[in-house]
Nucleic acid binder design. Sequence first.
DNA 1: TAGATTGTTAATCGATTAACAATC
DNA 2: TAGATTGTTAATCGATTAACAATC
Lengths: 219, 219
Amino acid sequence: MNTPDKRPVSISKQALRRMPVYLQYLKKLQAEGFCVVASPAVARALDLGEVQVRKDLAAVSSVQGTPKKGFPIKKLIADIEAFLGCNDVRRAVLVGAGSLGRALLSYGGFEQYGLNIVAAFDSNDSLIGRLICGRHIFPPDHIADVCREKGIRIGIITVPADQAQTVCDRLVEGGILAVWNFAPVRLSAPKHILVQNENMAASLALLSRHLRARLNGIG
Amino acid sequence: MNTPDKRPVSISKQALRRMPVYLQYLKKLQAEGFCVVASPAVARALDLGEVQVRKDLAAVSSVQGTPKKGFPIKKLIADIEAFLGCNDVRRAVLVGAGSLGRALLSYGGFEQYGLNIVAAFDSNDSLIGRLICGRHIFPPDHIADVCREKGIRIGIITVPADQAQTVCDRLVEGGILAVWNFAPVRLSAPKHILVQNENMAASLALLSRHLRARLNGIG
DNA sequence: TAGATTGTTAATCGATTAACAATC
DNA sequence: TAGATTGTTAATCGATTAACAATC
């Protein structure tokens, strides 16, 4: 069992985003047979600052690191998993079984973080009733009912932009608490609902501009 | 024609990430028949700070905004597109035609930002030679050759984690300048290569922890 | 012991927000 | 004119980095 709330660990949003990266790397090290790792090594491997890593790990680790040695990998993995809530399984539904939706359905990697997609919805009649990657496809007007019945907390939106708001409303109606939005629109939702936008265009913009700078010698 | 380098417009990384969001919204407004928009309205619609929007728009707009009115939407769209480099088409290749790879191949939205995926690679024999979403699938050992021949600058990696580094090396060998990496690993590449990691696990971590806080009343 | 690594405090850097004069 | 919105400077906030004493 994990120390239940030693303190309300405060950590920056950015540090939180780095946690899955550490987790990934630590698991790799573990698979390779290592038992202990020091922050400078992690920093080098992941191309991050030494102090940053030291601070991040200190923030989530339940044990102190040993000077000259580092942290026990196994414990660190358990701590990060506990911190991220990988252990409490969270059931989610996905709306929009188009290509992106299916990609997410078939991707097994999210289970590692406790996300379990239990059902999917699509307005396409030819999909309804079918099983895609092991999930039943329901028609969109069942969204609220299914969510309520199964006590779902997370909704994943992978429909086109113009349908996203309607879908969001139905999810909220069904008692969802968090929305992971892949549609390129801002959704409006009650304040207590967390809307996390996945914005690939933003990344693309960054990439595109970097490239431009390189080619033109601007930046 | 756009003002060629009025100044080496400096803008924060965060602001750059917001640009596609503005672009999206402005296009929507334009489609609805609006010609002018003021930053407070944009701020409200996108749930951002007024000053932030004002500053962001001022940074990229080629014309001053008119007090009490705002900005001409058409011009603003053109400016943001020019700023992001949506006009210079950049050809890219994609490696890994699994479910995520196909999702990206079938997604038309990136063309809006000047990204054009011209070929794909996969090690699965049953896919090689086929056409997926209009792109030919080649075997992985042609990566470097194809990139060199076609003068490709961007490589998109959607293979499993353990193959990503090899793929990256081949792309670099083929003269790629930027890598958009969807595999959950840090890639090592020469310093002049831009590696942009698309990290959905990071978003999921944020979402998951928020949800946890809400449910447990931590934060 | 000597040296590497730890945890932490203080300084720096970057981005957001508040405040305000200028303008249509 | 009055009022809304603009652009910009200064203040604040948050995150990273530098510095250093403590420790195995």
